[in-house]
């Protein structure tokens, strides 16, 4: 499981970085999205990988924390997803404005000669 997750994160971030370095704004935004997926998975994995362990404590009785998954990284991922989504949407608007103003989807706003 660790290997699969590590490979998934690596592939996501690797493709994301490659796209981020491309000259078209659409490639850049897809690259940023891929990177943020990879980062979210990474945050999740920092709470250690557990199968079948709930992150939320049941009510009543004494509980053994060792039986539960770490809830904090999951809460962090949730926050990171929301913030990442919002900022990517904002970037999308700027991307469209730039396309409208310059008539080019190059990141520098003009086609290289």
């Amino acid at each position: 499981m660790e290997l699969t997750l590590a490979l998934a994160i690596g592939v996501l971030i690797g493709s994301g970085v490659w796209l981020l370095l491309r000259p078209r704004t659409f490639q850049v935004i897809i690259g940023l999205s891929l990177i943020s997926y990879g980062v979210n998975l990474f945050i999740f994995s920092m709470g250690r990988l557990r199968v079948g362990a709930a992150p939320v404590l049941g009510s009543g009785g004494t509980v053994n924390p060792a039986d539960y998954a770490d809830p904090i990284p999951q809460a962090l991922v949730l926050t990171a997803i929301v913030i990442g989504f919002a900022t990517t949407a904002l970037f999308l608007v700027v991307l469209l404005v730039s396309r409208g103003l310059t008539g080019s989807d190059h990141v520098d706003g003009r086609e290289p000669n």
Binding site: T25, S36, T87, S98
Partner: peptide, 16 residues
Amino acid sequence: VKTGLHYIVINLAGAS
């Protein structure tokens, strides 16, 4: 808009 675009991309990457 052009410099803003660069600014946003760099800061989004920084946030990651």
